[in-house]
């Protein structure tokens, strides 16, 4: 009983159409969010942490994990509030304000809960959490899920995949930058310009996935 209720909530289509769920569409969403439309390398969301936290591999992994975590919670919160609070009352125009408040308070809440119950995890993710409020990938996922008219199930899948895509780009970038530390680079390109060049090369590589979606 509970299960079928949950299932119906998850697959319900926002605009009132027939509930539907297909593995093919799920796979398409996952491949698209991780590779074809990678949130960092092709949609340009989350560039600030991508450039700022990609100097070391350890911190890149920590940041990635924190982003996946908050992204899923933010998607859940924003989707429910949008479709069950804003839409029924005709207040869709409050979307931006509502979402940013949801994200900011979620981040704060997660930080407090982690600090209290899991100090080890807090030590690992803690310093990244305040940065996440202004990570546009989080707000971006929340808004795109609404724009693409995804059901709650698809939205959650999309947000996990987007988070994995972000982590993938961040970890690859950190690995490359660690290696470039010792490389002999022209004086003018040292630092940020080099990071942009590497990102450009990675972005070209990710363009190669464009055919995958068919």
């Amino acid at each position: 009983m509970m299960n079928s209720f949950l299932m119906s909530v998850i697959v319900a289509v926002p605009d009132g159409g027939e509930p539907s769920f297909s593995i093919a569409k799920m796979m398409a969403i996952i491949v698209s969010a991780i590779f074809i439309n990678n949130y960092v390398l092709s949609r340009f969301l989350g560039i600030c942490p991508f450039l700022g936290v990609s100097k070391q591999l350890d911190s890149a992994v920590g940041m990635g994990a924190a982003v996946v975590f908050v992204m899923v919670l933010a998607t859940l919160g924003s989707w429910l509030v949008y479709h069950h609070l804003l839409v029924p009352h005709g207040m869709e125009y409050l979307r931006t304000i509502t979402f940013i408040i949801i994200i900011a308070s979620l981040v704060q809440l997660v930080e407090m809960i982690l600090q209290k119950f899991s100090p080890a995890l807090y030590d690992a993710l803690g310093i990244f959490l305040p940065l996440i409020t202004t990570n546009c990938a989080i707000l971006g996922v929340a808004v795109l899920n609404i724009d693409d008219k995804f059901s709650l199930g698809y939205s959650l899948i999309n947000s996990v995949a987007a988070g994995i895509g972000f982590t993938l780009a961040l970890v690859l970038m950190a690995g490359l930058r660690e290696r470039m530390e010792t490389a002999n680079v022209p004086e003018a390109l040292k630092g940020l310009p080099l990071a942009f060049l590497i990102a450009g090369a990675m972005s070209i590589a990710f363009l190669g996935f464009a055919g995958l979606g068919g």
């Binding site: 390398l41 092709s42 340009f44 022209p186 004086e187 003018a188 390109l189 040292k190 630092g191 940020l192 310009p193 080099l194 990071a195 942009f196 060049l197 990102a199 450009g200 090369a201 972005s203 070209i204 990710f206 363009l207």
Partner: peptide, 20 residues
């Protein structure tokens, strides 16, 4: 997308040289 990253690298490089 790649064009944005690469052009930005050169623009920032140019500003680095000017600064120097």
């Amino acid at each position: 997308a790649p064009g944005a990253f690469i052009l930005m690298a050169f623009i920032l490089g140019f500003f680095n040289i000017m600064e120097k």
